[in-house]
């Protein structure tokens, strides 16, 4: 299969502390990669490098056939790299529906000129994205919260909403930083159901998760990080229970 993301010899140091050393791996399309390892081994840092929040010292990142090493975070997001943060970052003082609407790509209403030149395009986009948002909210069973403020949601609902924000656009690759951390069993089921639904539709994920058992069952490749190096890179062929 085709590789969606190729990481070559990626290294990163912070003030002399070598956080990541010569990381190399590749991610096939439609696969789910589990990334695991002890605390502070650089998992989140790796995500920051992939989605462009920080620049790496050495190496290359190739996404969808293009070398995106020099791209900024905004360009990478638009190219199709989405991210769910370790600590959810939903907009605290906005209503849930507005949060979803704000996260749509290519909204003609983002450009001032369109309000004068082509107001109809804004209206029609607004309509389709509202429908989409309603669908997403319905799917996540957050419809009754659509007028609540982001800051008033529970920890689990924030994670769901962040997933919803990602579902508003068609990201090619989604980076999930500990999506199950701090949730109760019910919420974990809900989120993993959502993820498997998305995977069935061909979504590619990298998931950071501490509990290796929990992820190895849902993923088809497990990367183990230790002290900034990949110490294991196992492809799992039989455990595709998520995909099928």
């Amino acid at each position: 299969m085709e590789d969606l993301l190729i990481i070559e010899n990626l290294s990163k140091a912070y003030n002399g502390l070598q956080v990541l050393q010569e990381i190399s791996f590749s991610v096939e399309k439609n696969s789910i990669i589990a990334l695991t390892g002890e605390n502070s081994t650089g998992k989140t840092t790796l995500f920051n490098l992939i989605n462009g929040f920080d620049s790496h010292d050495n190496g290359n990142i190739i996404f969808d056939g293009k070398n995106i090493s020099q791209w900024g975070a905004i360009a990478r997001s638009r190219a199709g790299i989405g991210r769910l943060f370790q600590n959810s970052r939903v907009f605290k003082n906005m209503r849930v529906l507005d949060i979803l609407l704000a996260s749509c790509f290519d909204n003609p209403g983002e450009r001032i000129l369109n309000y004068f030149v082509n107001p109809a395009s804004i209206k029609s986009f607004e309509k389709t994205s509202r429908n989409k948002a309603a669908e997403v909210l319905n799917y996540l069973r957050l419809l009754d919260k659509s007028q609540d403020f982001g800051g008033s949601l529970s920890h689990g609902e924030k994670k769901l909403l962040s997933l919803g924000m990602l579902m508003m656009n068609n990201y090619k690759l989604i980076l999930l930083d500990e999506p199950f951390a701090g949730l109760n069993a019910k919420m974990i089921d809900k989120i993993s159901d959502t993820l498997s639904d998305l995977a069935r539709n061909g979504q590619t994920f990298i998931i950071i998760e501490h509990n290796i058992e929990k992820v190895s069952s849902i993923s088809n490749q497990v990367l183990i990080l230790k002290e900034g190096r990949i110490i294991e890179n196992n492809k799992i062929n039989n455990a595709n229970n998520l995909i099928n």
């Binding site: 929040f53 905004i74 360009a75 997001s77 939903v90 907009f91 003082n93 704000a102 209403g109 656009n169």
Partner: peptide, 24 residues
């Protein structure tokens, strides 16, 4: 009520998340 003002508000609440959404 415009989509634009929503983006101002998101910028106010969390700049990094706005960047992650591919907006400047």
């Amino acid at each position: 009520k415009t989509p634009f003002s929503r983006l101002l508000e998101s910028t106010r609440d969390d700049e990094l998340a706005v960047i992650a959404m591919g907006k400047n």
